[in-house]
Design a protein around this nucleic acid. Structure first.
Lengths: 271, 271
DNA sequence: CGGCCGATTGAAGACCCTCAAGTCGCGTGG
DNA sequence: CCACGCGACTTGAGGGTCTTCAATCGGCCG
């Protein structure tokens, strides 16, 4: 099983599915070669823990395929998901010895790992690597601040809509990178591409999260998540095919239900 | 007024209060000289807006003295604070044309600004600068994820305690850098230093936030903040001297009330 | 003094959580 | 084939926490 996954993943950076999205995105071929020297792949099955918070972590990594979560836990058991890691996302922190959060695979997961010490050297010596990592970290920071608004100020229904809209958009962007059936478990699109303002924006995807994981992301209970999911379904904002497959008939409408502007709340360069 | 502030701030980087904490912390003297060429100071009064979300922003900056907030606003007026900027914190994002959040001064504020285009060049050319910015951004990301736990999973009382504990610790760390009365409005300590496990940890500081700002930070209403503040006061966890000055007789106890472990959860994970 | 702003306090109710059944899908084994 | 068990999900009823709306208090400044 683990070996099978191993073989599915190209060992050659040039053919890699996340070649132009991951931390290595801006690297030239010679720089890629240096990364190849210190990289190795690791596979995980759903539910497996990649690292526990506080554990020593001797590598950093890119998610090649699959989905993982970053979780924070309190002593009494309360949990908050603080990151949802999709393909091309970066795991771990250069310049730190131990992990700050639990990292858990929620689907079959393949990581492209780099030994930490040499990676830290490359960050210094390869400008394209350091600048890309900075850029990705700044993006992560923006995303996590966006999420603070969701957690702090949105009602349960808006929270669910926000999660679905964001995952849908990220899945669609990833699916655009490659053949629809490659890599991520079940990720793909039906209907037209996500962009195009005249289009209804029909798209569908497998949401690889249990109700409990969604609740942990949104600061809700799983019961509330379930109730709001059926509410969104009866209101026609989403359709459910089985428990996991989500169909979004009208993305702008869902985005409005999330409390954001129809354009997705992203950059607004006017004013 | 603005001129007075201007003069209070040293123009010489070597004498700067935030010399060893800000983005320039790791720079050598010659590198500092390059920064000095592109820097300029700007002062703001309480309530003034530094930039609006969506506005074009031609500089990045370090907070020299005072406190500012990073706010996100929804169309219907709901607001969430996504960052609390204290001296040495970095403002703005290299590689982006417009601001993503409102930045507002909550006290008298002095920014050490760098023109963006040349600063972006320095990030590439001066390794000490780029690596420090990456480090600070990773720290910010950790802090914002810590805050997601507060927003998503903590009760009102724990939220307040978390805010007070974090601000107290940051203020104490800053005050340790320099003479107690320099720079930040009213920031200082009474009693022993914050560290030292045998000590009760008595400390006090001016909390430069209105109840409304605290509510915006915590995802609460200002009424709830007020109620929980008086509850903490009657329970002896804090004392109030006037509306703004906070005395914390027993920091570990406050940290426990925040739901965190007594060590503060902020484990020093440096290599 | 009067006006204003921030903070406090009170009462009623909405929203979400807690606890508890009950359902659905699916693989196992009698 | 169907009973059984298991995990994920759904649905229901009741209660608690926080919000909402409103009145009051207190300090500051003209």
């Amino acid at each position: 099983m683990s070996l099978e996954k191993f073989r599915l993943t190209s060992q050659n950076c040039c053919d890699c599915q996340i070649r132009y999205r991951a931390v290595c995105a801006h690297c030239e071929n010679d720089e890629l070669a240096q990364l190849e020297n210190i990289k190795f792949y690791r596979s995980f099955e759903p539910g497996q823990t990649v690292v526990w918070a506080g554990d020593r972590m001797d590598f950093v990594a890119s998610v090649v395929s699959g989905v993982a979560t970053l979780n924070q836990t309190m002593e009494d058991g309360r949990r908050q998901m603080v990151g949802l890691l999709l393909p091309s996302d970066f795991v771990g922190r250069p310049g730190r010895l131990t992990a700050t959060h639990d990292v858990t695979a929620v689907t079959d997961l393949v990581l492209c790992c780099f030994r930490k010490a040499p990676f830290e050297r490359l960050i210094r010596d390869v400008p394209h690597l350091g600048s890309r990592l900075l850029e990705m970290t700044l993006d992560e920071l923006d995303a996590s601040r966006q999420w603070m608004l969701v957690l702090g100020r949105k009602a349960a229904r808006e929270k669910i809509a926000s999660l679905l809209a964001i995952v849908a958009q990220r899945m669609a962007a990833l699916a655009g990178d490659r053949t629809p059936d490659a890599g991520m478990a079940g990720a793909g699109m039906a209907g037209g591409p996500a962009s195009g303002p005249a289009e209804p924006g029909l798209l569908s995807f497998d949401l690889p999260l249990t109700r409990e994981a969604m609740a942990d992301y949104l600061g809700l209970t799983l019961e509330t998540v379930s109730r709001q999911m059926t509410a969104l379904k009866t209101d026609g904002l989403i359709r459910l095919e089985g428990a996991r497959r989500i169909v979004i008939p009208d993305l702008p409408r869902l985005v409005r239900a999330a409390g954001d502007d129809a354009d997705g709340g992203m950059v607004d360069q006017t004013r």
